[in-house]
Design a protein around this nucleic acid. Structure first.
Lengths: 194, 194, 194, 194
DNA sequence: CATGAATGAGAGTTCATTCAT
DNA sequence: GATGAATGAACTCTCATTCAT
């Protein structure tokens, strides 16, 4: 596959990504993507042979890019509390964006698929987020910012609450206040009185 | 609509329920339900005119029946901790049943619809569950079983964790151990050393 | 068939008539009539077995009633010109009523059917109207009101113009002015300067 | 849409035209056209999305082609009477063809639709025919072939009679003699003794 | 007589997928 | 590589008609 082909493939993925954000996973047809990309029906099949295949690649693209978030945006002298606050705030923004997210598409996709666990991106991301948060909490405990008995448990708890907020946002609707309230509750448990 | 019609309607709803449990919401067609019920194409339309309509009635059926769960199965002399443990255990069983649940169908349905908040069953159930848990915790605090500063906040936190576990169970998969671990964490926060 | 049955049959026909006026012939289903009559599906089949059968009976009802129009509403001392004017005015009113008429249903019905000529009500009505107009014109000629060389030809011509106006009204739309203009033209030919 | 597509579209329209001639408008389903064209169900939808759409294009095709009738078939030295006779004869042939005509389909279509007047082809054709006939009559009056007081009125009258004959032909049936008789009557009014 | 539940045929429509160009 | 016409399967939905009650 030449350079030009790679370009086109990337173009398709980026366009498809927008489509998935708008319509979720199950509602998206090959036709939708063909039309959004303004290419020919047959053309799309040269690169991908199903929406599932496309979606998986979109997801990979996504996870590669999101790896950098932490490192990019945080200054060197940030405290653990700062970083955690930053992370939670990012999550909050994501939560409240509602339709402009791959969340629904991702859930819908994983509802269907019997993806082997090892390759389940959701799982990988969840687990790695837990680890990061755990490290963060430990650092905070070291520096006296936080107090907690079971850092790993707390990290996991935080992630489940976030997951709960995420699905709530997409199904029942949540307001900024509701998110804040839950995040506060979490932080309080860590001994922060912010 | 006569008695017999009501019987049949109920039969359809119960059969459709199973279909939704197996296939979620979006994958279910009127044809699927027709075949599961072993009735004619037109016959189904006498009772319902879309999968959405059917699903909503299934959901209502469901929520009416689940109202009784608490009252039915708990002895009069149960302590707050007993009741909470029972409730969490029910949730755990539900969580682990995975495919045998309306969870996915429900999420899929609410992903799509812009149901007015007031009528959103998910919201109603969540909110009422929060209240019940709050009462339970208060009772436990009174009786010295639990200790907590912010009972309402804790109740909400519990529900969000459960919600997070629920979606995790359907997308990443969770084991009994993973659920237990989270429930333990919650109970520990309440001052229980179980 | 008892008295009561006859009543019911008549009720159905009168109700169906309204339905045909609103929807034409081809658009009317047995279901439409059942619903308009508020009777049971099976009930309708006790009396009629197709929309065609119903429509034909409606048409007969109609033609029996319309026979009286002339005799009923015209005074004894009316001149030929008066009567002709009255007749044309009735036609004009009918024409302009547009949707409140069996015209479309009738046309639609006869487009389809291969009715033996003898039983074709349209033909019978047309022919008898021609005869009446011819008589009228002859009477007018006798009394010096009209002048014409070919009374039968003129009568026929009048009827074809009316027919032309009728179909125009239903397809292209005609205004009162357009109808008047054509009727004037006809009357002028008869030597009337009205 | 390429050249080949245009060819196919034209082929579909021509085939559909025959179907409409045989079955009218309302009786024609997409399936009928698919079968007549011997193409696939989905194939038809690539070009048209409803029988209405197809019919309208058939009608346009028709009206474009019929524009030429006059100019094509008449010699330069024809008198007004010749041309009028030719025109009426064409109409007569059309009338008597009965089933081999778009007449019924057209009427059925315009019974239904609330086409804005400006775009109503029936109206456009009627009005333009009136104008042509008027011109013809005026020319005939100039050359001494015809005599008439109200040329426009006469032209209109002729068209309404033709319209009346047309609908009569489709509903009651008319014979060649009946048409001739009416045309004679019209010509006599113009002072022709043919 | 009357009801209305039930059936099944048939029309409309949309797409995934293929394939000749 | 790229196109887009073509196919056919799968769904949705509506009714005429029947029949047990």
């Amino acid at each position: 596959m030449g350079e030009k082909s790679l370009q086109k493939k990337k173009y398709i993925l980026e366009t498809a990504r927008k489509v998935f954000m708008q319509k979720g996973f199950k509602n998206v047809t090959m036709k939708d993507i063909v039309e959004a990309c303004d290419i020919s029906r047959g053309g799309l099949y040269l690169y991908f042979s199903s929406t599932e295949e496309i979606f998986l690649e979109v997801l990979h693209m996504e996870s590669e890019q999101s790896d950098d978030v932490f490192s990019d945006s945080i200054g060197d002298d940030a405290t653990a509390a700062d970083i955690l606050a930053f992370f939670l705030n990012e999550q909050k923004k994501e939560l409240l964006r509602k339709r402009d997210t791959l969340t629904i598409a991702t859930y819908e996709y994983y509802f269907e698929s019997n993806v082997p666990k090892k390759e389940n991106i959701l799982k990988i991301q969840f687990d790695s987020a837990v680890k990061i948060i755990e490290k963060l909490i430990q650092a905070g405990v070291m520096s006296g910012e936080f107090s907690c008995e079971d850092c790993l448990g707390t990290a996991r708890n935080i992630m489940y609450v976030l997951e709960g907020l995420k699905i709530s946002a997409q199904t029942r609707g949540v307001t900024a206040e509701m998110v804040d309230r839950e995040l506060m509750f979490i932080l309080k448990e860590l001994g922060i009185k912010e």
